[in-house]
Each structure stands twice: as structure tokens, then as C-alpha cells.
Amino acid sequence: MSYAPELVIKDLHVGIEGKEILKGLSLEVGKGEIHALMGPNGSGKSTLANTLMGHPKYEVTSGEILFKGESVLEMETDARARAGLFMAFQYPVAIPGVTVANFLRTALNARLAPPETNGGGAMPHKRGIAPKEFRAMLKERMGLLKMDESFAGRYLNDGFSGGEKKRAEILQMAILKPEIAIMDETDSGLDIDALRVVSDGVNALAGPAMGVLVITHYNRILNYIKPDKVHVMVDGRIQVSGGADLALKLESQGYDWVRDGQEVELS
């Protein structure tokens, strides 16, 4: 049986305002896999995450991003999300006046009944989730992330603490059930308890139906989320890939040895 990874990134070059940040990055993530992408500040980790989601600021100059076998480069951000791509934001934006519940129901309905399937006057295939069913689902997923019920009525990310924001990101992932989830420095700014709750949430959701790409600067989150593969990114490229032990080596030796281009044998 041939292996068909869900997300394929081929020789990707990305620039911002004319400056090249990603310089030929290649990576494959399949369903049921957890990949960790590590690298020092400025190596292009967040650029990769946002390029995958289609942030208009980033320009793909060459290379390819295939999701479920199809190029996403011409797709708008919302179409990529509805197709099943998800990014947990490093800095989630506040949307004042819009409650978590209202937002999540709107987002879920967009994912369940995408406009492209019911446009052109055709009958919609699905009418979205019933309010009662949605409330039950929300309550259950919030319990998983140890969130108080009152959270659903708060305005999205508005006045949230750092930990609440990250938890809310995982809640969104739990509701939308993506096929590939990119965690952009989800561990940054979290204390150890929050990190554990967030990691538990990711572990509970990860499974055969979802691939996860954990982008992180530090090793810490990998004590809770066990990666199948670890990639080290320096200067816009993946320099080294390996197993979970690679993360441990980075912790003890830092990134310099990768930067120096030293050849390393990895088990």
C-alpha cells in the first residue's frame, strides 16, 4: 500500500516584501502522525504556518503545497480551512462583541456546509448543526479542556489570559476537527498547568483521522505531546529530520550544531 501523506510541501520558497524567508522547504505530514518542527527565532517557522493558511502578506515565489493531493496555493484562507486545514494561532486576535459560542457555531456550519457545495442555486447538502446538538457538543469539548461553561458566552479572545487564548484555540480545533492541524508556538506563554491541559487536549484529538504539526521553539511541549518525527529548521530550510530523540539532543546542545552544518547520524 502506498503512503499518501495528507500535506505535502515541496521545495517551498516564500518571501515577504521581497525578502526571502523560506528557501526551499520540503515536508510531508500524514494523517495519524505527529510532527514537531523546531528551530531558533527567525528561522521561518511562523512564516511556514501562515503560508500554509494563506496569509495574504506572504508570497509563494516557487514550490508547491499539496493538501489531500491538490494544490492550495490558489485557495483563499477560508477555503483551505473548510477543506480541513487548521492553524492554532500564536497570537489569537480578539473579536469584541462576538461570543465564543456564536463564532464556533458559525465556523462549524461553514465547515459542514461550505458555500462552494451549495452555491449556484443548488440545494444545500447540509443545513448545519442544530443549536441543541451544538450546545451539547460545545459543553463536552469544553469539559475536555477544563473550561468553565461561562467561557462560551465571553467575547472571542477579548480580555482572555494567555492560557485562555491557547485553550480557546484547541477548543476550536476540537469543534472543527481538521485533518491537518498546525500548532504555531502553542506552548509559548503557557505555565506548566496550562501546557498540560492544552497538550492533553491535542493528544485526545490526535488520532488516525488527524495529522499534527507542532511548531515550537522549545522542547518543553514535546514532554507532553510525543512526536513521531522531529524536524529542525534553520534559515528557511529543514536541515535535519529524525525521531523524538532529536529533540533531546537540541535541548542539550542547542541549535548551533545544526547551523554549523555538521553531519549527524540519527537513529
Partner: peptide, 27 residues
């Protein structure tokens, strides 16, 4: 950035804008 955030959750552009405007008037 608000638009990008909402669209990254699958909301079409006009739905995202509607939500932001509604939220703006909510208070």
C-alpha cells in the same frame, strides 16, 4: 488580522465581515 483569523476558521469573507460588524454594534 481579524479577517484573517476568522477566515482561518473557514468563514467566507462576507460572513467574517458581518461577524466583525455585528460584534462592533453588540455593546
Amino acid at each position: 488580522e481579524q479577517m484573517y483569523y476568522l477566515m482561518a476558521r473557514g468563514l467566507p469573507r462576507n460572513t467574517a465581515q458581518r461577524l466583525i460588524v455585528e460584534g462592533f454594534f453588540t455593546p
